[in-house]
């Protein structure tokens, strides 16, 4: 636990996150525009609109420009013969050890945005927890999935 895991996730993850964030932030801007329209139409105090615009602007900066980069830089993983080692978190850095023999199942999934960049996310579940590696290259993801499920096939009958 002293050294961080070595592998970074796919660089394109940043782009995928930015697009996802942009979609959400776009909704915020639409609401802001709507508010301004209401203010003009019904002669409401202007500060409501400016507050909304401020929130939208800050969100745009945070979620599109700042956080994806930081998040990518922090995200690390490493797959050992006996365990999976994951690190994530921007403000609170979390490092997790998941032993292979505790892995119950591994899922890969891919939404439309991840698909565009040929990325996929891998979810590793134990009987008590789930851990997600958010963006790996498709072939890395499926290779990792096969690798984990092969290693996890060690029989141990205590639940």
């Amino acid at each position: 636990m002293r050294q961080p895991p070595v592998n970074t996730i796919a660089r394109d993850a940043i782009k995928a996150w930015k697009i996802t964030a942009a979609l959400y932030v776009a909704i915020l801007w639409l609401i802001t525009i709507g508010l301004f329209w209401l203010i003009v139409e019904f002669d409401l105090p202007g500060w409501i609109g400016w507050t909304a615009a401020g929130i939208s602007a800050v969100s745009t900066y945070l979620f599109i420009f700042l956080l994806p980069e930081l998040r990518w830089r922090r995200w690390r993983y490493e797959v050992f013969e006996q365990e999976i080692y994951i690190q994530h978190g921007i403000l609170i850095v979390t490092r997790t050890i998941v032993p292979m023999i505790r892995v119950q199942h591994v899922d890969t999934s891919q939404g439309p945005i991840l698909k565009r960049f040929q990325l996929a996310s891998v979810t590793i579940s134990t009987a008590a927890t789930t851990h997600e590696i958010p963006a790996l290259l498709e072939e890395d993801a499926s290779e990792l999935r096969d690798h984990i499920s092969r290693l996890a096939r060690v029989d141990e009958d205590d639940v």
Partner: peptide, 30 residues
């Protein structure tokens, strides 16, 4: 089932950290 180490900036300065251990409990939850 899993072991976790958590550390935020303030803890890092103080060389402190938190840990979390997960086990199975009733009705399949952790």
């Amino acid at each position: 089932q899993a072991f976790e180490k958590k550390q935020h900036k303030l803890q890092k300065l103080q060389r402190l950290a938190s840990m979390k251990v997960s086990i199975i409990s009733k009705f399949g939850a952790g």
